[in-house]
Simulated scan of single mutants.
Amino acid sequence: MGFRRIRARHALVGVVALTAAATTACSSDDRAPAEDLPAAPALVDEAAEAARGIDSAHVTLDVEGSLPGVPVRSIEGDLTGEGEAVGTGTLEQAGQLVEVEFVLTADTLYLKGPTGQHQEIPAAFASSVYDPSAILDPEGGIAGLLTDLRRPRTLAAEEVSGTPAYKLGGTLPPETLSGLLPGVDSGADVTFWVRSDDSRMPVRASAEFDGGATVDITLSGVNEPVTVEAPA
């Protein structure tokens, strides 16, 4: 998942992320007939190219159900394509849910639990944590998921929070999914929603695993200014 600026992967202990979603997809009652829908291969290529051009976004990620090896339960924050991020997350530790604030700058991850101050984690120790900005990685983030989508098909024309979109379905192998969710050891059925206008920008992704666990990622505020500053 090479970033524009190569960073340590997996920066944010169980906080995310990748990436789900405070914003949910709302299906339109008026679905376009199948013959009016664009072909899936071209739509996937266009959406992947659009995703590689994302410089910043507000991202939410939600995990529902039990997903072995993945302690992340939710994340919400502002991310940049340069590998910086600021936001909040929830993770499960020893059967308990813990809320965390995070700030990820060029060289340091700052974490703050329910009490106390931010703790600094140097990049050298980032192998034990997860990096939410991986979601915008032009190779292995949302763009990478689209590129690796197997058996793609265009399912419907729907709306996501009022945004007209095409709904795409397919499957992804574990080696692709583990880039965003370290610890995942199985593939999943995956659904993407991409804008139906010329931008073809992805707005939501949802993965369903064996056993019923789901992971939802929603993008909004794409390419709007994001400022990330180290806490005082």
Results as ranks from 00 to 15, higher is better:
Met1Val: 14
Met1Phe: 11
Gly2Ala: 12
Phe3Asn: 10
Arg4Trp: 14
Arg5Lys: 11
Arg5Asn: 12
Ile6Pro: 14
Arg7His: 12
Arg7Thr: 11
Ala11Arg: 15
Leu12Ser: 14
Leu12Asp: 12
Val13Cys: 11
Val13Phe: 13
Ala17Thr: 10
Ala17Gln: 08
Leu18Asn: 07
Ala21Tyr: 04
Ala22Met: 05
Ala22Lys: 06
Thr24Gly: 02
Thr24Gln: 12
Cys26Lys: 09
Ser28Thr: 12
Asp30Ile: 15
Ala34Phe: 13
Ala34Arg: 15
Ala34Glu: 15
Asp36Trp: 05
Asp36Ile: 01
Asp36His: 02
Leu37Trp: 03
Leu37Pro: 03
Leu37Ser: 03
Ala39Lys: 10
Pro41Ser: 12
Ala42Ile: 04
Ala42Val: 10
Leu43Met: 04
Val44Ile: 13
Ala48Ile: 08
Ala50Trp: 00
Arg52Val: 00
Ile54Met: 14
Asp55Thr: 12
Ser56Met: 09
Ser56Arg: 06
Ala57Cys: 04
Thr60Ile: 01
Val63Phe: 03
Val63Pro: 04
Glu64Asp: 14
Val72His: 05
Val72Phe: 09
Val72Arg: 11
Asp78Thr: 08
Leu79Tyr: 04
Thr80Ile: 09
Gly81Gln: 06
Ala85Arg: 00
Val86Lys: 15
Gly87His: 10
Gly87Gln: 11
Gly87Arg: 11
Gly89His: 04
Thr90Cys: 04
Leu91Ser: 02
Leu91Cys: 03
Gln93Ala: 09
Gly95Gln: 05
Gln96Pro: 00
Gln96Trp: 04
Val98Pro: 06
Val100Lys: 07
Ala106Gly: 15
Ala106Thr: 14
Thr108Ile: 15
Thr108Val: 15
Leu109Ser: 11
Leu109Cys: 06
Lys112Asp: 01
Gly116Trp: 15
Gln117Glu: 07
Ala123Glu: 11
Ala124His: 02
Phe125Thr: 06
Ser128Leu: 13
Val129Cys: 05
Val129Leu: 08
Val129Gln: 01
Pro132His: 08
Ser133Thr: 07
Ile135Asp: 04
Ile135Tyr: 08
Asp137Lys: 00
Glu139Lys: 05
Ala143Asp: 03
Gly144Thr: 00
Gly144Gln: 00
Leu146Phe: 02
Arg151Ala: 12
Arg153Pro: 00
Leu155Gln: 09
Ala156Pro: 02
Ala157Phe: 06
Glu158Pro: 10
Glu158Ser: 08
Glu159Asn: 03
Val160Asn: 03
Val160Cys: 05
Ala165Glu: 06
Ala165Arg: 00
Tyr166Asn: 00
Lys167Glu: 15
Leu168Ala: 01
Gly169Gln: 08
Thr171Trp: 07
Pro173Gln: 08
Glu175Thr: 09
Thr176Glu: 09
Leu181His: 03
Val184Lys: 08
Ala188Ser: 10
Asp189Gly: 11
Val190Leu: 13
Trp193Arg: 07
Ser196Leu: 06
Ser196Gly: 01
Asp198Gly: 09
Ser199Trp: 06
Arg200Ser: 11
Thr214Tyr: 11
Thr214Cys: 07
Val215Ile: 10
Ile217Phe: 07
Thr218Ile: 01
Leu219Tyr: 05
Leu219Met: 09
Pro225Met: 14
Val226Ser: 11
Val226Asn: 05
Glu229Leu: 13
Ala230Met: 07
Ala230Asn: 07
Pro231Ala: 13
